[in-house]
Design a protein around this nucleic acid. Sequence first.
RNA 1: GACUAAUUAGCUCAGCCGGUAGAGCACAUCCCUUUUAAGGAUGGGGUCCUGGGUUCGAAUCCCAGAUUAGUCACCA
Length: 571
Amino acid sequence: MELSEQEIQRRNDAEELRKLGINPYPAPMYDVNTNTQEIKQEFEKDNTLFQDVKIAGRIMSRRIMGAASFCEIQDEKGKIQLYLNRDEICPKEDKTLYNTVFKKLLDIGDIIGVSGYVFKTKMGETSVHVKELKVLCKSVRPLPIVKEKDGKVYDAFTDPEQRYRQRYVDLIVNPQVKDTFVKRTLIVNTMRNYLDEKGYLEVETPILQPIYGGAAARPFKTHHNTLDTTLYLRIADELYLKKLIVGGYSGVYEFSKDFRNEGMDRFHNPEFTQMELYVAYKDYFWMMNTVEEMVERIALALHGTTEVKVGENIINFSRPWKRYTMYEAIEHFTGIDISNMDEKELRQTATKLNVPIDDTMGKGKLIDEIFGETCEGKLIQPTFIYDYPIEMSPLAKKHRSKNGLVERFEAVCNCKEICNAYSELNDPLDQRQRLEEQLELGKRGDSESMVVDEDFLKALEYGMPPTSGLGIGIDRLAMMMTNSNSIQDVLFFPQMKPEVQEAITTDNDFINQGVPQQWISMLRKAGIGSLENLKNANINKLFNDLNGLRKKNKLDIPALKIEELKSWIEK
RNA sequence: GACUAAUUAGCUCAGCCGGUAGAGCACAUCCCUUUUAAGGAUGGGGUCCUGGGUUCGAAUCCCAGAUUAGUCACCA
């Protein structure tokens, strides 16, 4: 890869530092005694503090005025301005540290450590008056420059591709991004504390599974060499966790990365995080209370209030949330009671409501479509929707009193599902039948159909207590709690298509190919970065390009002859 | 998978009807001892995403492809 002018400059600067006896990448620790946030907050209250501070961070801007300079450094908590005076950081004759090291060899992006005292400038900005300066890391790649004044951001670094592929750059120049991820961790920690307080056991179950199950999704497939067997990356943890309830734990939960080989969009990443919880001797009504309480606590932990701004809406997570059965919700939003309709009537109703349907849809699917089209988009405030059609819920217990339904609920919020829970099916014979039916359905479209997990059924045959189970999407919850528009904004490293990496061809490879040293950099400039490229190049175009570059760069070498070029390509 | 849009300097972006590639920041050199998105002067920096085509001539028009985003489809 050709280096840009600025990259070459920075590499030279690093070399110059070495010549001055300064290691641009020193080994010893640099022990700071405070941070930028602490200084800014506390100095405001008591300006006798911080008379001997030591801090470190990345240089984010510089203003040099001859023998004195200001620059800003950024640490994890924020930025602070530094004041450097030539004669103070270089009290003796030798002014190299200021004139050469600071002014010439350091740049925006480099990491330095400083010690000195805190003061306020004439402009009223809390700053560190630097007495000592140490280079901690020379950056050889220039950062995007983002400037800001009175909250207005100039030249913002916003290109999603670069932000997601190079999250580290995003984190450096867009400080609010750091906050999103701090909040995400706080969500997880709050949830974990809540569950631990209740006495549930955090567990780990296999990610590599010989049989995948627990959801309707296509898996990622891999292979174990020693066992010479196919393994799947899990799509859900449900079956393993229920086996632990059979084993006698009264409450188990897992924060799990799950993997689904499906389409990607603003709400779906191939790997995502769920928290699944199973508690013995409970039912789905109990679980609704638990979800409300847990999510309300998370909102309070993050925002100090139950009200959270999401897009244009203010969402209030305070308990109790609204509760509708699926039928009630449909009646509420359409005025039509479908609870006693048969398949034909449902079909007519769907058509009347302009809900797109097709012939393959059974009763359950029709109800679900009607709900999705007419209700989901209107549920802004957190709402429990419960009692689902049996067809699409093979792991949920049949309703205690209503035929054709299961004891299942979802919480919908800002028009999106955030969790999914049931009274778990623990009748092993019913479970076998339901899974087998599901299998039949699955076989129609899918080339690789699911297999019934016999070991899971065996476990149920030993007897699982009545249990309530929950799956809550951490990414979705994080999106909502941080007002993020896309799942990529709450994942540090969202999945992206791999960048095509050109085969690395060294100068020596080109020389072996017969290319003279002087022409190599021209070749690279002409877009020929590898031998592969050279062999596939259009000879006439390349011939013109190279001689054009020779002229442009005023090279003091004879013009290339086409025979010469041919010899490189054909060798 | 379909449609739409974007891709130009390290970054943010202009670039008209096809005629030698532009700005601001950043970078380099010089001046400047309390500045604050931007002090002054001068200068360097380009695979105009890639590959074809049309044309005397393409960043610009046409075709194909790559990547990203949005919408829809699929998918709990």
